[in-house]
Design a protein around this nucleic acid. Structure first.
Lengths: 206, 206
DNA sequence: TGTACATCAGTGAACGCGCGTTCACTGATGTAC
DNA sequence: TGTACATCAGTGAACGCGCGTTCACTGATGTAC
Protein backbone atom coordinates (compact mmCIF):
# COMPACT_ATOMS: atom_id res chain seq x y z
CA UNK A 1 0.00 0.00 0.00
CA UNK A 2 1.46 3.32 -1.06
CA UNK A 3 2.00 6.24 1.24
CA UNK A 4 -0.88 8.05 -0.38
CA UNK A 5 -3.25 5.19 0.30
CA UNK A 6 -2.21 4.80 3.93
CA UNK A 7 -2.74 8.45 4.75
CA UNK A 8 -6.10 8.29 3.03
CA UNK A 9 -7.03 5.35 5.21
CA UNK A 10 -5.82 7.27 8.25
CA UNK A 11 -8.13 10.21 7.62
CA UNK A 12 -10.93 7.78 6.98
CA UNK A 13 -10.29 6.18 10.36
CA UNK A 14 -10.09 9.58 12.05
CA UNK A 15 -13.49 10.46 10.64
CA UNK A 16 -14.99 7.12 11.67
CA UNK A 17 -13.67 7.41 15.21
CA UNK A 18 -14.96 10.96 15.54
CA UNK A 19 -18.32 9.87 14.12
CA UNK A 20 -18.66 6.96 16.55
CA UNK A 21 -17.81 9.22 19.46
CA UNK A 22 -20.30 11.95 18.54
CA UNK A 23 -23.04 9.57 17.48
CA UNK A 24 -22.92 7.95 20.89
CA UNK A 25 -22.52 11.09 22.99
CA UNK A 26 -24.67 13.63 21.17
CA UNK A 27 -26.94 11.31 19.21
CA UNK A 28 -26.93 10.87 15.45
CA UNK A 29 -29.56 13.53 14.81
CA UNK A 30 -28.02 16.12 17.12
CA UNK A 31 -24.59 16.18 15.51
CA UNK A 32 -23.84 17.59 12.08
CA UNK A 33 -21.34 16.51 9.47
CA UNK A 34 -19.40 19.66 10.31
CA UNK A 35 -19.31 18.67 13.99
CA UNK A 36 -17.79 15.35 13.03
CA UNK A 37 -15.27 17.02 10.73
CA UNK A 38 -14.21 19.38 13.53
CA UNK A 39 -13.94 16.49 16.01
CA UNK A 40 -11.79 14.57 13.53
CA UNK A 41 -9.64 17.64 12.84
CA UNK A 42 -10.49 17.48 9.18
CA UNK A 43 -12.23 19.65 6.61
CA UNK A 44 -16.01 19.22 6.23
CA UNK A 45 -15.53 18.70 2.51
CA UNK A 46 -13.18 15.85 3.29
CA UNK A 47 -15.88 13.98 5.17
CA UNK A 48 -18.11 14.13 2.10
CA UNK A 49 -15.27 12.85 -0.06
CA UNK A 50 -15.04 9.71 2.08
CA UNK A 51 -18.72 9.15 2.80
CA UNK A 52 -21.34 10.38 0.43
CA UNK A 53 -23.76 11.36 3.17
CA UNK A 54 -24.54 11.08 6.84
CA UNK A 55 -26.40 7.80 6.55
CA UNK A 56 -23.53 6.13 4.71
CA UNK A 57 -21.19 7.35 7.43
CA UNK A 58 -23.54 6.03 10.10
CA UNK A 59 -23.69 2.64 8.46
CA UNK A 60 -19.94 2.23 8.10
CA UNK A 61 -19.22 3.65 11.55
CA UNK A 62 -21.50 1.19 13.33
CA UNK A 63 -21.54 -2.01 11.35
CA UNK A 64 -18.20 -3.21 12.63
CA UNK A 65 -19.41 -3.09 16.21
CA UNK A 66 -22.48 -5.05 15.18
CA UNK A 67 -20.25 -7.55 13.42
CA UNK A 68 -18.29 -8.04 16.62
CA UNK A 69 -21.47 -8.46 18.63
CA UNK A 70 -22.70 -11.14 16.23
CA UNK A 71 -19.37 -12.90 16.31
CA UNK A 72 -19.41 -12.85 20.10
CA UNK A 73 -22.94 -14.19 20.22
CA UNK A 74 -22.14 -17.03 17.83
CA UNK A 75 -18.91 -17.89 19.63
CA UNK A 76 -20.62 -18.24 23.01
CA UNK A 77 -23.55 -20.20 21.62
CA UNK A 78 -24.18 -23.38 23.63
CA UNK A 79 -23.48 -26.18 21.15
CA UNK A 80 -25.60 -28.82 22.83
CA UNK A 81 -28.70 -26.67 23.33
CA UNK A 82 -31.78 -27.08 21.14
CA UNK A 83 -32.49 -24.82 18.17
CA UNK A 84 -34.85 -22.61 20.14
CA UNK A 85 -32.38 -22.06 22.95
CA UNK A 86 -29.56 -21.29 20.56
CA UNK A 87 -31.71 -18.76 18.73
CA UNK A 88 -32.62 -17.15 22.01
CA UNK A 89 -28.98 -17.02 23.05
CA UNK A 90 -28.16 -15.02 19.93
CA UNK A 91 -31.16 -12.78 20.47
CA UNK A 92 -30.22 -12.13 24.07
CA UNK A 93 -26.69 -11.13 23.11
CA UNK A 94 -27.87 -8.86 20.31
CA UNK A 95 -30.73 -7.19 22.18
CA UNK A 96 -28.32 -6.60 25.03
CA UNK A 97 -25.86 -5.05 22.63
CA UNK A 98 -28.46 -2.72 21.10
CA UNK A 99 -29.65 -1.86 24.60
CA UNK A 100 -26.42 0.10 25.11
CA UNK A 101 -27.77 2.85 22.88
CA UNK A 102 -31.30 2.12 21.74
CA UNK A 103 -31.86 5.52 20.22
CA UNK A 104 -28.75 5.33 18.07
CA UNK A 105 -29.49 1.89 16.69
CA UNK A 106 -33.11 2.79 16.08
CA UNK A 107 -31.97 5.63 13.84
CA UNK A 108 -29.37 3.44 12.17
CA UNK A 109 -31.89 0.75 11.31
CA UNK A 110 -34.51 3.25 10.22
CA UNK A 111 -32.10 5.01 7.89
CA UNK A 112 -30.71 1.84 6.34
CA UNK A 113 -33.25 -0.98 6.39
CA UNK A 114 -35.97 1.16 4.92
CA UNK A 115 -34.02 2.74 2.14
CA UNK A 116 -34.26 1.36 -1.35
CA UNK A 117 -32.42 -1.91 -1.77
CA UNK A 118 -28.75 -1.41 -2.60
CA UNK A 119 -28.28 1.74 -0.53
CA UNK A 120 -26.73 -0.05 2.41
CA UNK A 121 -24.26 -2.65 1.12
CA UNK A 122 -22.49 -3.37 4.41
CA UNK A 123 -25.53 -4.18 6.49
CA UNK A 124 -27.17 -6.00 3.60
CA UNK A 125 -24.19 -8.32 3.25
CA UNK A 126 -24.06 -8.79 7.00
CA UNK A 127 -27.68 -9.89 7.05
CA UNK A 128 -27.23 -12.22 4.08
CA UNK A 129 -24.25 -13.90 5.71
CA UNK A 130 -26.09 -14.35 8.95
CA UNK A 131 -29.18 -15.76 7.27
CA UNK A 132 -27.01 -18.25 5.46
CA UNK A 133 -25.30 -19.28 8.67
CA UNK A 134 -28.63 -19.64 10.42
CA UNK A 135 -30.11 -21.57 7.51
CA UNK A 136 -27.19 -24.01 7.64
CA UNK A 137 -27.83 -24.45 11.35
CA UNK A 138 -31.39 -25.45 10.62
CA UNK A 139 -30.31 -27.83 7.87
CA UNK A 140 -28.08 -29.54 10.38
CA UNK A 141 -31.03 -29.97 12.71
CA UNK A 142 -32.75 -31.89 9.95
CA UNK A 143 -29.92 -34.41 9.98
CA UNK A 144 -30.28 -34.71 13.74
CA UNK A 145 -33.95 -35.44 13.24
CA UNK A 146 -35.28 -32.51 15.23
CA UNK A 147 -36.45 -30.51 12.22
CA UNK A 148 -38.76 -32.00 9.62
CA UNK A 149 -37.18 -32.83 6.27
CA UNK A 150 -39.95 -31.12 4.31
CA UNK A 151 -39.35 -27.79 6.10
CA UNK A 152 -37.63 -25.14 3.97
CA UNK A 153 -34.59 -23.98 5.92
CA UNK A 154 -34.22 -20.68 4.07
CA UNK A 155 -37.82 -19.75 4.71
CA UNK A 156 -37.43 -20.78 8.33
CA UNK A 157 -34.29 -18.70 8.77
CA UNK A 158 -35.79 -15.59 7.23
CA UNK A 159 -39.07 -16.05 9.09
CA UNK A 160 -37.38 -16.40 12.44
CA UNK A 161 -35.28 -13.38 11.60
CA UNK A 162 -38.45 -11.42 10.80
CA UNK A 163 -39.81 -12.26 14.22
CA UNK A 164 -36.51 -11.30 15.83
CA UNK A 165 -36.46 -8.05 13.88
CA UNK A 166 -40.04 -7.02 14.64
CA UNK A 167 -39.56 -7.47 18.36
CA UNK A 168 -36.25 -5.62 18.14
CA UNK A 169 -37.92 -2.61 16.51
CA UNK A 170 -40.60 -2.55 19.21
CA UNK A 171 -37.81 -2.72 21.75
CA UNK A 172 -35.89 0.17 20.19
CA UNK A 173 -38.98 2.28 19.70
CA UNK A 174 -40.03 2.02 23.33
CA UNK A 175 -37.30 3.24 25.66
CA UNK A 176 -39.17 1.94 28.70
CA UNK A 177 -39.60 -1.62 27.49
CA UNK A 178 -37.51 -3.95 29.66
CA UNK A 179 -35.06 -6.26 27.92
CA UNK A 180 -36.72 -9.28 29.48
CA UNK A 181 -40.10 -8.40 28.04
CA UNK A 182 -38.64 -8.28 24.56
CA UNK A 183 -36.91 -11.61 25.05
CA UNK A 184 -40.04 -13.28 26.40
CA UNK A 185 -42.08 -11.99 23.53
CA UNK A 186 -39.57 -13.26 21.01
CA UNK A 187 -39.32 -16.61 22.79
CA UNK A 188 -43.08 -17.06 22.51
CA UNK A 189 -43.09 -16.09 18.82
CA UNK A 190 -40.15 -18.29 17.95
CA UNK A 191 -41.57 -21.24 19.88
CA UNK A 192 -44.79 -20.85 17.94
CA UNK A 193 -42.97 -20.77 14.64
CA UNK A 194 -41.07 -23.91 15.52
CA UNK A 195 -44.09 -25.87 16.71
CA UNK A 196 -46.98 -24.34 14.72
CA UNK A 197 -50.44 -23.50 15.97
CA UNK A 198 -52.68 -25.80 13.95
CA UNK A 199 -54.03 -29.01 15.45
CA UNK A 200 -52.06 -31.98 14.18
CA UNK A 201 -54.95 -33.13 11.98
CA UNK A 202 -54.98 -29.76 10.19
CA UNK A 203 -51.23 -29.52 10.15
CA UNK A 204 -50.86 -32.84 8.33
CA UNK A 205 -53.71 -31.95 6.01
CA UNK A 206 -51.89 -28.97 4.56
CA UNK B 1 -70.32 22.87 14.35
CA UNK B 2 -69.69 26.60 14.13
CA UNK B 3 -68.88 28.45 10.94
CA UNK B 4 -65.34 28.92 12.14
CA UNK B 5 -64.88 25.20 12.67
CA UNK B 6 -66.31 24.26 9.28
CA UNK B 7 -64.04 26.62 7.36
CA UNK B 8 -61.12 25.29 9.34
CA UNK B 9 -62.06 21.77 8.33
CA UNK B 10 -62.37 22.92 4.74
CA UNK B 11 -58.83 24.28 4.56
CA UNK B 12 -57.64 21.10 6.22
CA UNK B 13 -59.32 19.08 3.51
CA UNK B 14 -57.91 21.34 0.80
CA UNK B 15 -54.44 20.72 2.15
CA UNK B 16 -54.97 16.97 2.39
CA UNK B 17 -56.27 16.73 -1.18
CA UNK B 18 -53.37 18.78 -2.51
CA UNK B 19 -50.96 16.64 -0.51
CA UNK B 20 -52.39 13.37 -1.82
CA UNK B 21 -52.22 14.67 -5.36
CA UNK B 22 -48.63 15.86 -5.17
CA UNK B 23 -47.40 12.89 -3.15
CA UNK B 24 -48.66 10.58 -5.86
CA UNK B 25 -47.60 12.61 -8.89
CA UNK B 26 -44.27 14.09 -7.79
CA UNK B 27 -43.38 11.70 -5.00
CA UNK B 28 -43.21 12.56 -1.30
CA UNK B 29 -39.56 13.53 -1.35
CA UNK B 30 -39.74 15.64 -4.49
CA UNK B 31 -42.48 17.98 -3.30
CA UNK B 32 -42.08 20.58 -0.58
CA UNK B 33 -44.51 21.85 2.02
CA UNK B 34 -44.63 25.09 0.02
CA UNK B 35 -45.58 23.18 -3.14
CA UNK B 36 -48.49 21.62 -1.29
CA UNK B 37 -49.56 24.99 0.10
CA UNK B 38 -49.51 26.51 -3.37
CA UNK B 39 -51.45 23.57 -4.82
CA UNK B 40 -54.03 23.93 -2.07
CA UNK B 41 -54.24 27.70 -2.57
CA UNK B 42 -53.22 28.30 1.00
CA UNK B 43 -50.38 29.97 2.86
CA UNK B 44 -47.36 27.82 3.71
CA UNK B 45 -47.69 28.84 7.33
CA UNK B 46 -51.22 27.54 7.30
CA UNK B 47 -50.06 24.05 6.40
CA UNK B 48 -47.80 24.01 9.43
CA UNK B 49 -50.69 25.16 11.62
CA UNK B 50 -52.69 22.08 10.61
CA UNK B 51 -49.89 19.51 10.44
CA UNK B 52 -46.81 19.89 12.51
CA UNK B 53 -44.52 18.54 9.81
CA UNK B 54 -44.35 16.73 6.51
CA UNK B 55 -44.41 13.25 8.03
CA UNK B 56 -47.55 14.00 10.03
CA UNK B 57 -49.17 15.31 6.86
CA UNK B 58 -48.09 12.20 5.00
CA UNK B 59 -49.56 9.94 7.65
CA UNK B 60 -52.93 11.68 7.77
CA UNK B 61 -53.15 12.06 3.99
CA UNK B 62 -52.63 8.37 3.33
CA UNK B 63 -54.05 6.42 6.23
CA UNK B 64 -57.65 6.79 5.09
CA UNK B 65 -56.88 5.10 1.80
CA UNK B 66 -55.17 2.30 3.67
CA UNK B 67 -58.19 2.01 5.95
CA UNK B 68 -60.40 1.61 2.90
CA UNK B 69 -58.10 -1.02 1.44
CA UNK B 70 -58.20 -3.00 4.68
CA UNK B 71 -61.97 -2.71 4.87
CA UNK B 72 -62.27 -3.92 1.29
CA UNK B 73 -59.94 -6.84 1.92
CA UNK B 74 -61.87 -7.91 5.02
CA UNK B 75 -65.24 -7.50 3.31
CA UNK B 76 -64.28 -9.75 0.40
CA UNK B 77 -62.64 -12.37 2.59
CA UNK B 78 -63.96 -15.87 1.78
CA UNK B 79 -65.76 -16.96 4.95
CA UNK B 80 -65.45 -20.68 4.41
CA UNK B 81 -61.76 -20.73 3.52
CA UNK B 82 -59.15 -21.92 6.01
CA UNK B 83 -57.11 -19.56 8.15
CA UNK B 84 -54.13 -19.65 5.81
CA UNK B 85 -56.21 -18.82 2.74
CA UNK B 86 -58.01 -15.99 4.49
CA UNK B 87 -54.71 -14.52 5.61
CA UNK B 88 -53.39 -14.75 2.08
CA UNK B 89 -56.51 -13.10 0.71
CA UNK B 90 -55.91 -10.10 2.93
CA UNK B 91 -52.25 -10.04 1.99
CA UNK B 92 -53.05 -10.20 -1.71
CA UNK B 93 -55.45 -7.27 -1.45
CA UNK B 94 -53.02 -5.17 0.57
CA UNK B 95 -49.90 -5.92 -1.45
CA UNK B 96 -51.93 -5.12 -4.57
CA UNK B 97 -52.98 -1.84 -3.03
CA UNK B 98 -49.43 -0.84 -2.11
CA UNK B 99 -48.30 -1.89 -5.57
CA UNK B 100 -50.11 1.15 -6.98
CA UNK B 101 -47.33 3.37 -5.63
CA UNK B 102 -44.60 1.34 -3.99
CA UNK B 103 -42.22 4.23 -3.62
CA UNK B 104 -44.77 6.38 -1.83
CA UNK B 105 -45.77 3.71 0.66
CA UNK B 106 -42.17 2.76 1.27
CA UNK B 107 -41.46 6.31 2.35
CA UNK B 108 -44.66 6.45 4.40
CA UNK B 109 -43.81 3.28 6.29
CA UNK B 110 -40.19 4.28 6.75
CA UNK B 111 -41.13 7.66 8.18
CA UNK B 112 -43.80 6.36 10.55
CA UNK B 113 -43.10 2.79 11.61
CA UNK B 114 -39.55 3.54 12.58
CA UNK B 115 -40.14 6.71 14.50
CA UNK B 116 -40.33 6.62 18.26
CA UNK B 117 -43.55 5.09 19.54
CA UNK B 118 -46.32 7.68 19.84
CA UNK B 119 -45.29 9.74 16.84
CA UNK B 120 -47.80 8.19 14.49
CA UNK B 121 -51.15 7.82 16.30
CA UNK B 122 -53.32 7.10 13.28
CA UNK B 123 -51.34 4.21 11.85
CA UNK B 124 -50.61 2.86 15.32
CA UNK B 125 -54.30 2.64 16.13
CA UNK B 126 -55.00 1.14 12.74
CA UNK B 127 -52.49 -1.63 13.37
CA UNK B 128 -53.79 -2.28 16.88
CA UNK B 129 -57.35 -2.60 15.60
CA UNK B 130 -56.30 -4.96 12.88
CA UNK B 131 -54.23 -7.13 15.20
CA UNK B 132 -57.21 -7.41 17.53
CA UNK B 133 -59.49 -8.40 14.65
CA UNK B 134 -57.00 -10.94 13.44
CA UNK B 135 -56.46 -12.30 16.93
CA UNK B 136 -60.22 -12.78 17.32
CA UNK B 137 -60.26 -14.65 14.02
CA UNK B 138 -57.66 -17.06 15.37
CA UNK B 139 -59.56 -17.49 18.64
CA UNK B 140 -62.56 -18.51 16.61
CA UNK B 141 -60.50 -21.13 14.82
CA UNK B 142 -59.78 -22.65 18.21
CA UNK B 143 -63.50 -23.20 18.72
CA UNK B 144 -63.68 -24.83 15.30
CA UNK B 145 -60.89 -27.14 16.35
CA UNK B 146 -58.41 -26.17 13.66
CA UNK B 147 -56.10 -24.21 15.96
CA UNK B 148 -54.66 -25.72 19.11
CA UNK B 149 -56.12 -24.49 22.38
CA UNK B 150 -52.72 -23.93 23.95
CA UNK B 151 -51.66 -21.54 21.13
CA UNK B 152 -51.55 -17.87 22.12
CA UNK B 153 -53.74 -16.03 19.60
CA UNK B 154 -52.19 -12.63 20.26
CA UNK B 155 -48.69 -13.95 19.68
CA UNK B 156 -49.88 -15.72 16.56
CA UNK B 157 -51.54 -12.58 15.19
CA UNK B 158 -48.52 -10.39 15.78
CA UNK B 159 -46.12 -13.05 14.49
CA UNK B 160 -48.06 -13.53 11.28
CA UNK B 161 -48.21 -9.79 10.90
CA UNK B 162 -44.43 -9.61 11.33
CA UNK B 163 -44.02 -12.08 8.49
CA UNK B 164 -46.49 -10.12 6.37
CA UNK B 165 -44.68 -6.89 7.14
CA UNK B 166 -41.18 -8.16 6.43
CA UNK B 167 -42.16 -9.46 3.02
CA UNK B 168 -44.01 -6.21 2.33
CA UNK B 169 -40.89 -4.18 3.06
CA UNK B 170 -38.82 -6.37 0.75
CA UNK B 171 -41.52 -5.88 -1.86
CA UNK B 172 -41.53 -2.10 -1.50
CA UNK B 173 -37.75 -1.84 -1.42
CA UNK B 174 -37.34 -3.76 -4.67
CA UNK B 175 -39.27 -2.12 -7.52
CA UNK B 176 -38.62 -5.10 -9.80
CA UNK B 177 -39.97 -7.77 -7.48
CA UNK B 178 -43.15 -9.23 -8.94
CA UNK B 179 -46.27 -9.25 -6.79
CA UNK B 180 -46.55 -13.01 -7.13
CA UNK B 181 -43.10 -13.60 -5.76
CA UNK B 182 -43.94 -11.63 -2.64
CA UNK B 183 -47.17 -13.54 -2.19
CA UNK B 184 -45.50 -16.92 -2.63
CA UNK B 185 -42.82 -16.03 -0.15
CA UNK B 186 -45.37 -14.92 2.40
CA UNK B 187 -47.47 -18.03 1.78
CA UNK B 188 -44.48 -20.24 2.53
CA UNK B 189 -43.62 -18.29 5.69
CA UNK B 190 -47.19 -18.25 6.95
CA UNK B 191 -47.67 -21.94 6.24
CA UNK B 192 -44.55 -22.66 8.21
CA UNK B 193 -45.74 -20.61 11.14
CA UNK B 194 -49.07 -22.40 11.15
CA UNK B 195 -47.60 -25.89 10.94
CA UNK B 196 -44.20 -25.53 12.57
CA UNK B 197 -40.92 -27.05 11.45
CA UNK B 198 -40.00 -29.37 14.31
CA UNK B 199 -40.64 -33.08 14.06
CA UNK B 200 -43.75 -34.02 16.04
CA UNK B 201 -41.68 -35.71 18.74
CA UNK B 202 -39.73 -32.50 19.33
CA UNK B 203 -42.81 -30.35 18.92
CA UNK B 204 -44.65 -32.15 21.69
CA UNK B 205 -41.57 -32.19 23.84
CA UNK B 206 -41.46 -28.42 24.13
C1' DT C 1 -81.43 43.87 18.80
C1' DG C 2 -77.21 46.27 18.54
C1' DT C 3 -72.66 47.49 19.80
C1' DA C 4 -68.11 46.78 21.38
C1' DC C 5 -64.75 43.70 22.17
C1' DA C 6 -62.36 39.03 22.16
C1' DT C 7 -61.02 35.16 19.74
C1' DC C 8 -58.70 32.79 16.37
C1' DA C 9 -57.82 30.82 11.49
C1' DG C 10 -55.14 32.28 8.11
C1' DT C 11 -51.42 35.40 5.96
C1' DG C 12 -46.91 36.41 3.97
C1' DA C 13 -42.48 37.53 4.89
C1' DA C 14 -38.32 36.64 7.22
C1' DC C 15 -34.90 33.94 9.65
C1' DG C 16 -31.74 30.08 11.18
C1' DC C 17 -30.16 25.62 10.44
C1' DG C 18 -28.21 21.44 8.34
C1' DC C 19 -27.16 19.09 4.31
C1' DG C 20 -25.22 18.38 -0.18
C1' DT C 21 -22.57 20.35 -3.78
C1' DT C 22 -19.31 23.11 -6.13
C1' DC C 23 -15.06 25.65 -6.75
C1' DA C 24 -10.39 27.05 -7.25
C1' DC C 25 -6.61 25.95 -4.79
C1' DT C 26 -2.48 23.64 -2.06
C1' DG C 27 0.96 20.52 -1.45
C1' DA C 28 2.53 15.98 -0.94
C1' DT C 29 3.20 11.77 -3.45
C1' DG C 30 3.90 9.07 -7.53
C1' DT C 31 5.81 8.48 -12.27
C1' DA C 32 7.88 9.08 -16.88
C1' DC C 33 11.91 10.09 -19.03
C1' DT D 1 19.94 9.53 -10.06
C1' DG D 2 17.60 13.67 -10.98
C1' DT D 3 14.19 16.56 -12.97
C1' DA D 4 9.81 17.82 -14.62
C1' DC D 5 5.26 16.84 -14.67
C1' DA D 6 0.83 14.37 -13.38
C1' DT D 7 -2.08 12.79 -9.94
C1' DC D 8 -4.95 13.21 -6.21
C1' DA D 9 -6.27 13.73 -1.08
C1' DG D 10 -7.50 17.36 1.35
C1' DT D 11 -8.87 22.46 2.01
C1' DG D 12 -12.01 26.23 3.14
C1' DA D 13 -15.31 29.12 1.50
C1' DA D 14 -19.53 29.79 -0.81
C1' DC D 15 -24.07 28.61 -2.54
C1' DG D 16 -28.89 26.71 -3.00
C1' DC D 17 -32.46 24.19 -1.02
C1' DG D 18 -36.08 22.55 2.13
C1' DC D 19 -37.77 22.54 6.60
C1' DG D 20 -39.39 24.46 10.86
C1' DT D 21 -40.28 28.56 13.37
C1' DT D 22 -41.45 33.20 14.37
C1' DC D 23 -43.73 37.59 13.77
C1' DA D 24 -46.91 41.27 13.35
C1' DC D 25 -50.91 41.55 11.02
C1' DT D 26 -55.89 40.96 8.83
C1' DG D 27 -60.44 40.07 8.94
C1' DA D 28 -64.16 37.12 9.80
C1' DT D 29 -66.65 34.96 13.46
C1' DG D 30 -68.23 34.49 18.12
C1' DT D 31 -69.73 36.57 22.58
C1' DA D 32 -70.73 39.62 26.54
C1' DC D 33 -73.44 43.16 27.86
Amino acid sequence: MSRRETTKLETRQLILEAARKLFHTKGPEQCTMRDIAREAGVSPASVVVHFKNKTALLEVALYEDIEKAIAGAVATMPQDACLHDRLMHIAQCMYGFYDNDRELYRVLIRDTTFEKAGQNPYLTKQLEDYLQFFGAMIEQEKLLGTVRFDADARIAASSLFSLYFSVLMEFLRNPNMPLNMALEWLAASAHQHLTGILTSKEGKGK
